[in-house]
Design a protein around this nucleic acid. Structure first.
Length: 306
RNA sequence: GCCGGGGUAGCUCAGUGGUAGAGCACUGGUCUGAAAAACCAGGUGUCGACAGUUCAAUCCUGUCCCCCGGCA
């Protein structure tokens, strides 16, 4: 097993990533870096399935294993792929003088993994400009993008206001079309970059796991949402747009019956898992595991030795 | 038992004498600093059953079955 390659454990939500990562980390003496855009929030734990841990000497520890990039932001703060890259690099830079400390990336936010392992173009960002742009209508935004950057406009549907705005933002800040500045290489081959374990359980099994997990976490989500509402946060707070929390809030407000809220969250989670599967399916050089029944960290390590 | 309403997609329902559509679900996909986000594409069907009228019936007629109200 090559020492200097990181391990990645990725896959759809509820596929058992965290458990496997902790098992591997404990065997290898590794640290975990979370690639999860929601577990970064301190106040969202149950609803994001963040592993329970405690802060000690500036490290979030789960069963004594350092679990990086979780539980460090407040809900009014934002996080993004670029920030993920910077922080991950910094953490990885903390290697001990002798040898290499192995790192296990674990998470379901494919965009973060893309950004870290295949690089991100240095593209500017401007919150104020974004606010200005958000006042424009979709057709207006798309028309402007078409004038400035026809290629991006052709690739981005008018309905997709986020990507339209971002492409336009890049053009306005750099005077160069985003389609020119962005890396065109869509290849996503992890060979030589990492040991990539793609947990992809059979759909029926994953759906069942999602159903059970959602039912189990609903009360906790409501408690978390309720506490945040009391502090003055609203549905508009970005972190509270995380999957399931809007439904928990609607339940708390009486707009949704309990069963309906739970059912809705299950559906949304299944749909999210599908998008994650679509994302990860295009990766090359990964070890895909569909059958979780005989999965063990020991077995995984054996596989890597060969 | 009688009276009324209804049986159309997985669900809720629209619709027409020329074999059918919406929303949601579902399926596939997009993705470069919001990504648990924001989108794109696709109709998946014995139109309750049987018979009749008709060139043609999911639609009209009859019988039957089932569901929901009301009266007994």
């Amino acid at each position: 097993m090559k020492k200097n390659l990181p391990i990645i454990i990725a896959g759809p939500t509820a596929s058992g990533k965290t458990e496997l990562a902790l098992g591997l980390a404990s065997l290898l003496g590794a640290e975990i870096i979370s690639a999860d855009s929601r577990q970064v929030y301190k106040e969202l734990t149950i609803g994001t399935a963040k592993p329970e841990g405690k802060w000690e000497n500036g490290k979030y520890l789960v069963n004594n294993i350092p679990y990086n990039l979780v539980d460090f932001l407040y809900v009014e703060q934002t996080f993004n792929a670029g920030e993920f890259c910077n922080r991950s690099k910094k953490i990885q830079g903390n290697v001990p003088p002798q040898g290499t400390l192995p790192y296990i990336f674990c998470g379901g936010t494919g965009m973060y993994l893309d950004a870290f392992f295949f690089g991100m173009n240095e593209l500017p960002k401007d919150e104020n400009l974004r606010k200005e742009l958000s006042l424009l209508s979709k057709p207006e935004l798309h028309a402007r993008l078409k004038a400035a950057d026809p290629q991006s406009a052709a690739e981005i549907p008018e309905g997709n206001i986020q990507r339209t705005m971002r492409a336009l933002e890049i053009y306005l800040l750099t005077k160069t079309p985003a389609s020119v500045l962005r890396n065109k290489d869509k290849a996503r081959d992890f060979t030589g970059k990492a040991f990539f374990i793609y947990l992809n359980p059979d759909k029926e099994i994953l759906n069942k796991r999602i159903e059970l997990r959602t039912k189990k976490m609903f009360e906790g989500m409501c408690a978390e949402a309720s506490a945040l509402l009391k502090k003055g946060h609203t549905k508009q707070t970005p972190a509270l747009k995380s999957l399931g929390y809007p439904q928990a809030i609607e339940f708390l407000e009486g707009a949704l019956k309990r069963e309906d809220a739970i059912e809705k969250i299950i559906t949304l989670t299944r749909q999210y898992a599908k998008r994650q599967r679509t994302w990860f399916n295009r990766y090359e050089g990964v070890m895909e595991i569909n059958d979780l029944t005989h999965l063990s960290p020991e077995k995984i390590i054996k596989n890597f030795v060969n």
